[in-house]
Deep mutational scan, measured.
Amino acid sequence: DVEPGKFYKGVVTRIEKYGASINLNEQVRGLLRPRDMISLRLENLNVGDEIIVQAIDVRPEKREIDFKYIP
């Protein structure tokens, strides 16, 4: 289970102007929005990149997770 405040290694699977889709595994994925990137710009991400993200909002009833990137 993903817990708010914990850090996870994820893989960038899609990049859109509203954010990047991050997969932690086949069943768990979430969104990294541009506003939640401290020192990383969306255009510097590539599909397949592995990054460390922090879960900031977990809504299991909607199967949604928001991530934050902290270098």
Rank of each mutant, 00 (worst) to 15 (best):
K9M: 10
P34R: 10
L40I: 11
K9V: 11
K17D: 11
A55D: 00
K6P: 01
Q27E: 12
E3A: 10
Q54R: 06
G10I: 06
A55R: 03
I65H: 04
N23C: 15
G19Q: 05
G30L: 08
L45T: 01
L24K: 00
G30S: 02
I51T: 00
G5A: 04
S21H: 15
R29K: 12
F67I: 04
D49Q: 11
L31D: 02
D36M: 09
N44K: 06
Y18G: 09
Y18A: 10
V11A: 01
I70Y: 11
P34K: 09
K9F: 08
D49F: 06
R33C: 06
V11G: 00
R14M: 10
G48A: 01
P71L: 07
R33E: 02
I52T: 10
L31M: 13
G10A: 10
L45E: 00
P71G: 13
P60C: 09
E26T: 12
Q54N: 01
I38A: 10
D66L: 15
A20Y: 08
D66Y: 15
L32E: 01
D66M: 13
D36E: 05
Y18F: 13
D66G: 09
E43G: 08
G5S: 04
D49Y: 05
L40Q: 05
F7V: 05
L24R: 00
M37L: 06
A20W: 07
E50C: 15
Y8C: 13
I51D: 00
G10E: 01
G10R: 00
D49V: 06
E61W: 08
R33H: 06
I52D: 02
P4C: 13
N23V: 14
N25P: 03
I70V: 14
V47T: 03
A55G: 01
I38S: 09
K62V: 12
N25W: 11
G10F: 09
S21Q: 15
K68I: 08
S21T: 15
G10Y: 05
E61A: 11
Y69T: 03
K62P: 06
I56F: 10
N46W: 09
N25T: 12
I15T: 03
G30D: 02
A55N: 00
E61Q: 10
F67C: 05
G30T: 02
K9G: 02
L31E: 02
V12M: 00
P60F: 09
G48M: 03
K68H: 05
G10Q: 01
E43P: 04
D49E: 06
L32G: 01
V11Y: 12
V2Q: 03
P4L: 14
G5E: 03
R63I: 07
N46V: 11
Y8I: 01
L42S: 03
L45G: 00
F7G: 01
G48R: 01
D1S: 14
